[in-house]
């Protein structure tokens, strides 16, 4: 009996590193909630710096990077121990970032400073700072690592930055308050959400020309409240899920025809999304209601709400 208990205890202790997890940053609690993808329970709550927002893992999931906006730092965490190993110089008020495919250069949007900062995560030094529009937020990197996008919320642009020269080579106007950007289809397209504009613009990467724009319409919700923020694609890039902010819905888009196929009701002011490793479940951060909605991807139905900390914002998957 004793031996059985010991084995169980060992298994329990080891479980956080075995089961896939969704990590959620709680902006107003200075914590990260870790959700077990199988049990759909919060297994750990880990303290961070002030006002954590964007979070991302490196490619082998041995490090978690955290934008601790009010600490003016990007924190580097060991996800096994939950320990903050060190801070990276990030520039002022880092909000979102993207890790280049080389796993070495972190591109950070400094919301209060109208600057994008490039940090080398190994030397822990700032490599470059690039002047962008006011309130930079959305960050994306092309799969070949040659282009980084910063979107600026008040300037209403996507800035195309050459990662070698650190120069902006194009600026694309988008609708009001762009929030999030992603390259899709091997980097041939760039999608940008505009929160106040209520649209997603799709750009041809080669020409930086806008080729399409997607709008949304939910019965019983005033168009002004339909505010696209974060979005995620299925691995085949055929379907996009778009968080629509205070409309409290997630839109499902056929990424080929660009038609909106449906809307899923989630918690209040939905910000960002993360898939489970097998892409059967989608987790949404709901800022105002302080919870995470779990969506069954096949049926496109919400299956569970999980209480997390105050103002959950970013989400990242760890297999």
């Amino acid at each position: 009996m004793k031996r059985f208990l010991l084995t169980t205890a060992c298994l329990l202790m080891a479980s956080p590193t075995l089961a896939a997890e969704i990590w959620v940053s709680n902006e107003k609690d200075d914590t990260i909630s870790v959700i077990d993808v199988e049990t759909l329970e919060v297994t750990r709550t880990i303290p961070t710096g002030e006002r954590p927002r964007g979070i991302t893992f490196n490619s082998d999931y041995s490090r978690l990077y955290i934008c601790a906006s009010d600490s003016d730092a990007v924190q580097v965490m060991d996800p096994v121990t939950g320990e903050i190993l060190h801070d990276l110089p990030s520039g002022e008020d880092p909000e979102q970032f993207v890790l280049a495919p080389d796993n070495r250069h972190l591109w950070i949007a400094n919301e209060d400073d109208a600057v994008t900062t490039v940090v080398d995560v190994e030397t822990r030094k700032v490599v470059a700072q690039i002047n962008v529009g006011i309130e930079p937020e959305g960050m994306a990197v092309s799969p070949d690592g040659k282009t980084v996008i910063t979107t600026s919320e008040t300037t209403n642009m996507a800035h195309w930055i050459d990662t070698e020269s650190h120069q902006i080579y194009a600026n694309s106007l988008v609708d009001a308050r762009p929030r999030h950007a992603e390259f899709v289809n091997e980097g041939t397209e760039l999608w940008v959400s505009a929160e106040i504009g209520g649209t997603i613009s799709i750009f041809d990467t080669a020409t930086q020309q806008e080729k399409a724009k997607i709008g949304f319409e939910i019965q019983g919700v005033h168009p002004d409240l339909i505010q696209p923020v974060g979005f995620e694609f299925t691995p085949d890039h055929k379907t996009a899920f778009v968080a629509l902010g205070p409309s409290n819905h997630v839109a499902v888009i056929d990424a080929e025809t660009l038609e909106v196929e449906g809307y899923i009701l989630v918690g209040r002011r939905v910000w960002h999304l993360a898939f489970s490793p097998d892409h059967t479940r989608l987790f949404t951060t709901n800022g105002v209601s302080g919870d995470v909605t779990v969506i069954d991807v096949a049926s496109r139905k919400p299956v569970k709400t999980i209480k997390v900390g105050r103002f959950p914002w970013g989400a990242a998957m760890k297999p």
Partner: peptide
Amino acid sequence: LLRRTIFLALFACV
């Protein structure tokens, strides 16, 4: 709702 964009250089990209 799908709006294929019709405006060119001025609106789309500078």
